[in-house]
Simulated assay, not measured.
Amino acid sequence: MTFCIVYYSPEGHTKALAEAIAAGGDATLFDVTTLTEADWTILDNAGAIVMGAPTYMGGLPSVFTAFIEKAAARWEHGLWRDKLAGGFSTALHPAGDKLNALMSMFVFAAQMGMVWIGATETGAPVVPENEGINTDGSWVGVTASVSSKDGELLKEGDLETGHRYGARMRQSLDRWEKGAIP
Rank of each mutant, 00 (worst) to 15 (best):
R81D: 13
R81E: 12
R81V: 05
K83A: 11
K83P: 04
L84A: 07
L84V: 00
L84W: 05
A85G: 05
A85S: 14
A85E: 05
G86A: 07
G87I: 08
A91V: 04
L92G: 15
A95R: 07
K98V: 01
N100R: 09
A101W: 01
L102V: 00
L102D: 03
L102E: 04
M103N: 14
S104V: 00
M105A: 12
M105V: 04
M105C: 09
A109D: 10
A110V: 09
Q111S: 10
Q111Y: 08
Q111C: 13
M112D: 11
M114K: 15
M114V: 08
M114C: 06
V115D: 14
V115I: 14
W116K: 12
I117V: 12
T120L: 01
T120Y: 00
T120M: 02
E121P: 02
T122E: 10
T122Y: 12
T122A: 12
T122I: 15
P125S: 08
P125C: 08
P125L: 08
V127Q: 13
P128D: 12
E129H: 02
E129C: 00
E129Q: 14
N130A: 11
E131S: 14
I133E: 08
N134E: 09
N134F: 03
T135A: 13
G137M: 11
V140K: 00
V140M: 15
V140Y: 08
G141W: 09
G141N: 13
T143E: 02
A144Y: 05
V146D: 10
S147C: 03
S148H: 05
K149Q: 15
K149G: 03
D150W: 08
D150A: 12
G151H: 09
E152D: 15
L154D: 03
K155A: 06
G157C: 02
D158R: 09
L159C: 05
E160W: 04
G162K: 00
G162S: 01
H163W: 00
R164P: 00
G166T: 07
A167Y: 01
A167L: 01
R168A: 04
R168T: 15
S172R: 04
S172Q: 11
D174K: 00
D174N: 04
R175M: 07
E177N: 14
